Each structure stands twice: as C-alpha cells, then as structure tokens.
Computed example of a mutant assay.
Amino acid sequence: MSLIGYVNNLDLIIESTFKMERAISIRTSVIAFTLIILAFGCDEASNKKVAQEGKTETIASSTKEQQWTQDQADVKAMIEHFLIVAGNYDLDAMDAMILDKANVGSIRLIDGAWKTSTITIAEYFEKSSNNELKPYFEPVRDWDIKISKGQLAFVEADAILHSYGVPRRNNVDFFTLIKEEGDWKIFNVTFTSTALPDDEKKLNMETFARSYAQVWSGVRPEFVAMFFEENGVLQVNESKPAEGRAQIAEVAQGFMRDLPDMVVRYDSLVTKPTGTEFHWTLTATHSGPAGTGNKVEVSGYELWQMGDNNRILKSQGHFPTEEYNRQLGIEIEN
C-alpha cells in the first residue's frame, strides 16, 4: 500500500471516532511518525551498505587529508620528518624535536607474548646504538590527529616498518606533542608492533627506492652502503667506480660532508632492458668545509642492476655536473 493510501484509510478511522479538530492533529502526528520510520529505514540501509563496504565514518574522515587544519598539518609534517630522522638514526635531529625527558613505550608481540618497555627517547636510541644499527623506513598509511586548545596534540599513526624495501612489521604509533614557544615538540611516543605474515614480506621496488632516498638524506654514509650487495659497485658520472660497501660509504660521506642539509627526493622508477632507473632530485646548501653557502637543486638518476639478495649489485649514477658546480659556485680547472 502506498503512503497516501495508508494515510487516507487512517483518516476514515479517525473521522469515525473523534472530532475533526482532534483527527487533524492525530493525522499530522501519524504522517510525521511514518516519515521518520521511512527515513530511519533509509539510514539503516545506508549504514548496512557502508558496513558491507568495510568503511566507517572515522576511517573516511581520516583519509581526507586536504581538510587538515593548520595545526594538524604542522603536526603531521613534523611526525613524518621525525620518522625519517629516526629511521636514519640522526640523534641530533631527533633531539631538537623532543622535550627534555620525553619517553617512549613499546609493546611488541614476540613469540606469542606481549613484551613491554618504557624508557626515555634519548636512552632508547642510545641503547639501540650499542647494537649494529640498520636503517628502516616507516611510512604512515592512516592518520588520526586531535588538537586541544591549539597547544596539545594527540596523534595515532598506523605505519608499516620496512627494511630495504621489504615490509616487516605493523607499528601503530601514538604521539603526544606539546607546543613550546610556538613549535610542536614530542613529549611521548608509544607504539604496538606486530610482525607481518611471511607471505606479505616481499620486496617492493618503489619502497626500496624511497628508503634509499631517505638514507641519502641522512648522516650515516654506511646506511647508503647497506643498500648494496657486499661486492656492489657505485659509479657517479665518469668518476672511478667505488667497489664494495666501504668505498661506497666514502662516496656518500663526501656528499654528506659538503652538503650537511642534503635532501634526496624520490621522483620515479623506470624499468629499462638494462635495469631499473631511480630518478631523484637533490636539494642542499654547500655549507660544509670550504663551502660557498650556495643553494643547489639538481635532478639525476641511477641505473640499477639488482643482486641475488635484493640489494644493488651495480649502480651507474648520472647528473649534470656542470650545472651542479655552477649552482654551488665551484670553479673546475680544465
């Protein structure tokens, strides 16, 4: 029966029992109630559809990154930078981003049991430095950022920790930040960490390239060398090839010394018959020893041949040397 027919039949019953004034009031209430039921049914159907698609309002809102407030955007950028310098074990850079006595708590699932640890952030990384350090790359895949009074920030960052382009663990990081003299500083970091299933631990070349760009933007040249096979080779333009990890680390050290604020940005990967081209853009200031203070921005690429251990076996680097030297203000004698 249609809604109109339903209401008309209801009118006949009402008119035979009550006065016209009372009937009109009841008729209005019934119509309103019926419309509410219909609307509720539509909402229920919509909610069921959303549930079937595996979505919720919370998840949907967290993916709308273009709608961050300025404080949220600032906090997000700060945490992204912190995860980069942490993955590079750049202790000086991290120290500038945390408050005194800031702490870190971790809860790891190991052999079926949860292991907890609480320590200051400084002690956490100092303790790690006693072991053989290895770089890691931890991009965040989902954010939840709440700001209180423009002074306190609570962040949940769902991330995947990668080692040389292979996903290893799911880290859900929780940050508390306090604004100090206009700058956001980290007061607390807590995270849960669970290993990924073995069938998900597969090399992703784009992630490998982004991780490689990250270590070039760091302060540890040995991290760059770790992306190469033990007998790997790196040649930059027409220079003498660096053979083995020790020589490759020396090449990276030269750039990091001359360009202390160097940032290498991943641009793209291009598959060629002769290997994989890793395209990058470098920005830096020539502020190392005998530096000119000039800024530089130059793009180039490395042609990779990968080894059996999913590390670089051979890399041939290309970038415009003359333009690079011109921007830095370096005169090369012929």
Results as ranks from 00 to 15, higher is better:
M1G: 03
Y6S: 02
Y6E: 04
V7E: 12
E15Y: 06
T17F: 03
E21M: 07
E21K: 11
R27Y: 09
T28K: 14
S29R: 13
I31N: 00
A32G: 07
D43T: 05
N47M: 12
N47D: 13
V50N: 15
G54E: 15
T58I: 10
I59C: 07
T63E: 14
Q67H: 15
T69Q: 11
Q72L: 14
A73W: 13
K76C: 09
A77Y: 15
M78A: 14
I79L: 11
L83P: 12
L91N: 04
D92L: 03
A93W: 02
K101N: 09
N103R: 05
G105T: 04
L109K: 05
G112N: 07
T116F: 08
T118H: 14
E123M: 06
S128H: 06
S129H: 06
Y136T: 00
E138F: 00
E138A: 00
P139H: 02
R141D: 13
D142S: 12
W143T: 09
I145E: 10
K146H: 14
G150H: 12
L152N: 11
D158A: 13
D158Q: 13
L161E: 06
S163V: 07
N170W: 13
K179F: 15
D183Y: 11
K185E: 02
T190P: 08
D198G: 00
D198R: 07
D199P: 00
D199R: 02
K201V: 03
A209S: 06
W216Y: 06
S217K: 01
V219G: 10
E222A: 07
A242W: 00
M256F: 13
D258Q: 15
D258L: 11
L259F: 15
V264S: 04
V264D: 12
R265N: 08
R265Q: 09
L269Q: 04
L269N: 04
T274Y: 07
T276S: 09
T276K: 07
E277T: 02
F278E: 00
H279F: 09
L282G: 05
L282W: 14
A284S: 14
A284K: 04
A290T: 15
A290C: 13
G291E: 10
G293C: 09
V298S: 00
V298W: 04
E302L: 07
E302D: 12
N310D: 15
L313D: 03
S315H: 05
G317P: 00
H318T: 13
E323I: 04
L328A: 08
G329K: 10
I330K: 02
E331Y: 07
I332D: 01
I332S: 04
N334A: 12
